[in-house]
């Protein structure tokens, strides 16, 4: 089975974001493999352990330096990489179209993985768009996956620790949630090996994506300013408790 994993090259969540030209961020910072996509890679490797004939292909739409993220995915176990190179930022409609076109051009997906969301755009939608374009069933926030007899049985996490169980026919699109597994971080030899794995580069514009009439364009980015002015609550434990209660009652009005 060919397993495709869509991996996104995203700014490190711990990095400070600087806004430039009103609607972009200064990209001079550490980028890495989107955390949820790590769960996707790990799961694909687990599946390959049971189906050794499988091939795992990591696909990324990004700038040239997104190759680094493909290498991370390969160090975690992907067999090769596919970089759709573009120097622009694309919304999830274009992204899904590009990922779909590149995957179709490359092979025959038995399974497509994504993360449940990217931590930069926080779009929560690319997996559904890929599924719709390929006419495949989709599940997101998947925390348990069993592949059996031509179908996938998945648990999708809801709030409160509960989950729904769905059955999807194969091929299908799986959006990995955090409960799915514990990412297997690469060892030094894995990293060395990943450097020798092949990465095929294609240009976004060579995919000849038809422009969509729908779109989402960022017109402005602003830092989320913290306007809070901390005030100290002093006293012994009893006094503090009383003061907190008063604040909850009179100021926040929640009790």
């Amino acid at each position: 089975m060919q397993i495709y994993i869509c991996v996104k090259h995203v700014p490190d969540s711990a990095a400070n974001i600087t806004i430039v030209e009103k609607n972009r961020i200064d990209e001079n910072l550490t980028f890495l493999l989107n955390p949820y996509d790590e769960h996707a890679v790990t799961e694909a490797v687990r599946i390959k352990d049971n189906l050794p004939d499988s091939e795992i292909v990591a696909v990324c739409l990004g700038k040239d330096d997104a190759e680094k993220t493909l290498r991370s995915a390969m160090a975690m176990g992907a067999d090769r990489g596919l970089l759709i190179a573009s120097d622009k930022n694309h919304d999830s409609i274009e992204t899904a179209q590009a990922l779909k076109a590149a995957i179709e051009q490359d092979g025959n997906p038995g399974l497509i993985f994504t993360g449940k969301e990217s931590i930069d755009a926080e779009g929560m939608q690319t997996m559904f768009r890929i599924g719709a374009l390929l006419d495949l069933p989709v599940a997101t926030n998947v925390v348990n996956l069993d592949i059996e007899a031509g179908r996938a049985v998945v648990d999708c996490a809801l709030s409160g620790g509960t989950a729904n169980t769905y059955e999807l026919s194969l091929p299908c699109v799986i959006g990995a949630g955090r409960g799915l597994n514990t990412p297997r971080y690469p060892t030094f030899p894995d990293v060395v090996k990943s450097k020798k794995k092949p990465v095929k580069k294609i240009a976004f514009y060579d995919l000849k994506i038809e422009p969509s009439k729908a779109g989402m364009k960022i017109v402005e980015l602003e830092p989320l300013l913290q306007k809070r002015e901390p005030k100290e609550i002093k006293g012994d434990a009893g006094e503090v408790a009383k003061k907190i209660l008063r604040i909850l009652k009179d100021e926040a009005r929640v009790i």
Binding site: I17, E122, G215, M216, E220
Partner: peptide
Amino acid sequence: NLVKTSQYSGKTIATIKVTGDVLVFG
């Protein structure tokens, strides 16, 4: 057709211009 949401792990507020015949908002 402007929407505000957070991006970059909640560190920024993005104003997004949406286009198309149908707009969906969560």
